[in-house]
């Protein structure tokens, strides 16, 4: 079932990348993006993830899947230096964005997080108005353009504009869970990042909201590089171009990137047995 879906999917992916090439909006070649080398992540003395190597392609959607506790969240938080925000947590290795190591000495994590945005599992709007939720990040980052226009554009990109355009002054908390999550996506888009990291953005949402978020993803990858953690195999198959499978072989080991490949391959004939078992739902 998954495979049949993939054929149509690939068609669309190819068209999308052609669009991008034609548009020529991107200055840097597609091969740029993020390069992860020998990345390990720790919580104090506990090693949660070890030796990850991954090439995250620009303007593609990369899905991260794997059983609970295998380090997907830990790993994705290392990609914009959010991991180290947790007391005692740190990462080792190299993560480069367009060739620049974000862990290099002198690299400014604050600036890196603007360029590599993040959407969390649980919607976390600020207790401010809908408008200010979107505008705040842009404002502190010194946005000099027309703020009203930016807010509208960001909300449209996140497929939320029509639902909130008449109530921008109301609190972000007055929205439903699915709307809040799209508000958070809009807020992330408003600082114009290059990469968007999403950790199970739809796990707490109903199918309709999930669908809306997936639809926005199609649009997003025209402009952005997207990395998404998901427990939903169909979702990974539907929306991603590349898939990474994280796995812990023996209890107590750190999580590893078990297999990483094009999504079509990962879901039709992966190289490793554990991957196949996982994507076909035999465990996990």
């Amino acid at each position: 079932m998954v495979n049949i879906r993939r054929i149509g999917e690939e068609q669309r992916v190819r068209e999308t990348s052609k669009d991008v090439a034609k548009g020529g909006a991107q200055q840097t070649p597609e091969s740029n993006g993020m390069t992860v080398e020998d990345l390990s992540a720790f919580y104090g003395s506990f090693k949660a993830v070890t030796d990850v190597n991954m090439q995250i392609k620009r303007n593609k959607v990369t899905a991260l899947i794997g059983p609970s506790g295998c380090g997907k969240s830990t790993y994705i938080r290392c990609l914009n230096r959010m991991h180290e925000v947790i007391p005692g947590a740190y990462a080792e290795g190299k993560v480069a964005l367009d060739g620049q190591d974000i862990y290099a000495k002198g690299a400014d994590p604050v600036n890196i997080r603007r360029r590599i945005g993040m959407v969390f599992q649980k919607p976390n709007p600020f207790s401010k108005s809908i408008y200010e939720n979107v505008a705040w990040g842009a404002k502190i980052n010194g946005y000099r353009g027309d703020m009203d226009e930016l807010v509208e554009r960001s909300l449209k990109q996140a497929a939320l504009w029509d639902e909130v355009k008449d109530r921008l002054k109301e609190s972000g908390y007055s929205l439903s869970g699915g709307q809040q999550q799209r508000l958070v996506i809009a807020r992330t888009l408003a600082v114009e990042p290059e990469v968007i990291l999403m950790d199970e953005p739809a796990s707490a949402l109903d199918p309709v909201s999930t669908q809306k978020i997936e639809d926005t993803m199609e649009d997003l990858k025209k402009k952005y590089t997207v990395v998404i953690v998901t427990h939903n195999m169909q979702q990974a198959a539907r929306i991603s171009d590349y898939t990474g499978f994280f796995y812990i072989e023996n209890m107590g080991d750190p999580g590893r990137l078990w297999e990483f490949d094009e999504t079509s391959k990962m879901f039709s004939n992966p190289d490793r047995k554990e991957t196949e078992d996982y994507v076909t739902g035999r465990f996990g």
Binding site: N80, M82, V85, V110, N111, I112, R113, R114, R115, G117, M118, F120, K122, N124, P125, F126, S127, K128, W136, G137, I140, N141, V184, R187, T188, V191
Partner: peptide
């Protein structure tokens, strides 16, 4: 104040002080 609010602010490229002051 929930930690998710701080993380949300920091993930947008805000400094700790900006998040503390505004949220």
């Amino acid at each position: 104040v929930p930690g998710s609010v701080r993380e949300g602010g920091i993930a947008l490229g805000a400094t700790r002080w900006e998040v503390t002051r505004d949220h």
